[in-house]
Amino acid sequence: MQRVTITLDDDLMDELDKLIEERGYQNRSEAIRDLARAGLGQAARTSDTRQPCFGVLSYVYDHASRDLARRLTSTFHNHHDLTVASMHVHLDHDNCLEIGVLKGPTSEVQHFAEHVIAERSVRHGTLQIVPQVEKNTLEEASD
């Protein structure tokens, strides 16, 4: 194991200490190792843009924003080949949450998600990429 020294600003350190307490880590090193693994895993999942994947796109938007719901619906219809399923949730009087399950080449899924998140009055959006595992890969792993 190697020892590394890093410098973090006070606000980031406070957030890290809260995470350590909430999740019950024994020390900062364990928490930072887990966060590094998670970050490296996410980077690896999105590095091969040709690899088929599943994506979970979630975003919150102002449903009263002019033409936004129509534009979002059109975007999903125009990319029907990437869309597996979607769910709409009314959060409050002004805000809606949409969750879309996507499937396709990583680059196309990412591009589609970026387009949706960039729409005006979409207040928050995230995409979680899950690599599509081949059946043969699963069988080999279980042997």
Rank of each mutant, 00 (worst) to 15 (best):
H93G: 11
S142Y: 12
A36K: 11
E30K: 11
S47K: 14
I6D: 01
I32F: 06
S107C: 03
F112V: 01
N136G: 12
P105D: 09
A36Q: 07
R28Q: 07
Q26C: 00
L19T: 07
N136W: 04
L40G: 04
A36V: 06
S65A: 13
V4K: 07
G125E: 03
L102T: 06
R50E: 07
T106Q: 10
L8R: 07
N27P: 03
T126V: 08
I32L: 15
L82I: 02
Q42W: 02
V89E: 01
S121C: 05
E119A: 12
L12Y: 13
K135N: 09
S65W: 09
R71M: 07
Y25P: 00
R23F: 10
V109Q: 03
H80E: 09
V60Q: 09
M1Q: 14
I6N: 05
E22C: 05
T83D: 09
L91D: 05
I20R: 15
D17R: 15
S107F: 02
E30W: 02
F54V: 07
E22W: 09
S142Q: 08
E98P: 04
A118C: 00
L16N: 05
C96Q: 09
Q26T: 09
V109F: 04
P131N: 05
E139N: 08
S86D: 12
E98W: 07
S65T: 04
S47T: 07
D94I: 00
L57M: 03
A64G: 12
R71S: 09
P52K: 03
M13Y: 10
A118N: 14
R45P: 00
Q26K: 12
E108I: 00
I20D: 05
D10H: 13
E119F: 10
N27K: 12
M13Q: 12
T126S: 15
R70E: 13
Q128V: 07
P131W: 00
I32H: 03
L40I: 04
F76R: 11
R70H: 11
D92F: 14
E15I: 09
Y61H: 12
V60K: 08
V133F: 05
V116W: 01
E15K: 15
P105I: 03
Y61K: 00
L19Q: 11
D11C: 07
T126K: 15
V122M: 10
R3L: 07
R50Y: 04
P52R: 00
L12Q: 08
A44M: 09
D143P: 05
D92S: 14
R3I: 06
S58E: 04
L138C: 00
A38S: 14
N27H: 11
E15V: 08
D11F: 08
S107L: 06
I20P: 02
G24Y: 11
L127K: 08
E140N: 14
D94H: 13
R33F: 02
E22G: 01
Q42D: 13
L40E: 13
D62R: 10
Y25E: 11
S107R: 15
A69Y: 03
L72N: 08
L72S: 07
S29G: 05
D62N: 14
D14T: 13
D9R: 14
T137Y: 05
C96F: 11
H115M: 10
E22R: 15
E108Y: 01
R120T: 12
G55E: 00
H63D: 02
